[in-house]
Computed example of a mutant assay.
Amino acid sequence: MDTATSWTMPGPGWLFCPADRPERYAKAAAAADVVILDLEDAVSPDAKAGARQSIVDDPQDVERTVVRVNAATTDEFADDLAALEKTPYRRVMLAKTETRADVDKLDGHEVIALVESPLGAVNASQIAAAENVVGFMWGSEDLTAGLGGRRSRLAEGSYHPIVTQVRGSVLLAAKAHGCFALDSVFMDIGDLDALAAETDDAVNIGFDAKVAIHPKQVAVIRDAYAPTDEQVAWAEGLLAAAEGERGVFTYEGQMVDGPVFKQAQQILRRAEN
């Protein structure tokens, strides 16, 4: 079943922020389109209770904030949900989503399923069919650990083929069920050129946004998603030409059919952000 949500994504630059660092909330919000307040990996076990209290005490813009909760199979999950009930947040990223039953525990919330295990990867389509799943993200490092591997990337920096396979399967599951898809984080904060190249690939293949782990990565992500002046001019010209055409036609030497028309519309949508 396709998922319906009234939420419009504010932009493609998402940023993780440790939930136990409320002094960073406003700075993260100023840097990013969407902030993910993280109750999971970014917070040590002894700081989790304080992190939960922080998301209650320091509310942020509901339309631009997501809370990442601990996996549904952990002892921390129930406490995360109890804290959420004291906040206005209803859009949740579920760490290590593995089954539809995990998502069912978040009834009443819009869920971004974070697939980062072998079981979650093989169940992605089943998870996507849950009515409250609105989006997907995937993660490479936990996935690689779950496979018993040592490195998610090859020596030259590209992902190992099995990791790329999971990336693609999560994207397919999301799009097949009307969900948005977030590309995974890029861990080498200093290598902005490689981040730009990876984000370009995410844009080209259909990911709706990419998640950052440092504020300086957000500008690179936004730049990659922003269409060039030439792309905007092409899209505007194509859509204008289409008004006087019926069915398939030719524009600047290229055959234009339904998929090409949709690509032009997508370029203009991104230009508006």
Score class of each variant (00 low, 15 high):
Q53T: 12
K105D: 11
V69D: 03
V218C: 02
L106N: 10
N204V: 07
V203N: 08
V163M: 15
R246F: 11
G135Y: 00
S152E: 14
P161K: 03
E131Y: 03
A202T: 10
P59H: 10
D142F: 02
I205N: 14
L182H: 00
A224Y: 01
A202H: 04
G148P: 03
P259L: 14
Q254D: 14
A181R: 02
T228R: 05
T97L: 06
A226H: 07
T74E: 08
K262Q: 15
I267R: 13
V220P: 01
G157M: 10
A224G: 02
A176S: 10
D201K: 09
L171T: 09
V69Y: 04
V220S: 02
A72V: 12
G146Q: 09
R167V: 15
R64D: 07
A176M: 13
E76M: 10
A83Y: 03
E272S: 14
M93I: 05
P12S: 01
I205L: 14
L172H: 10
G149C: 11
S184R: 07
K27R: 14
E252S: 08
T144I: 10
K262A: 15
N204L: 12
L106C: 06
V67E: 02
V103M: 10
P88V: 07
D104K: 12
V218R: 00
A30L: 10
R151Y: 07
Y89A: 06
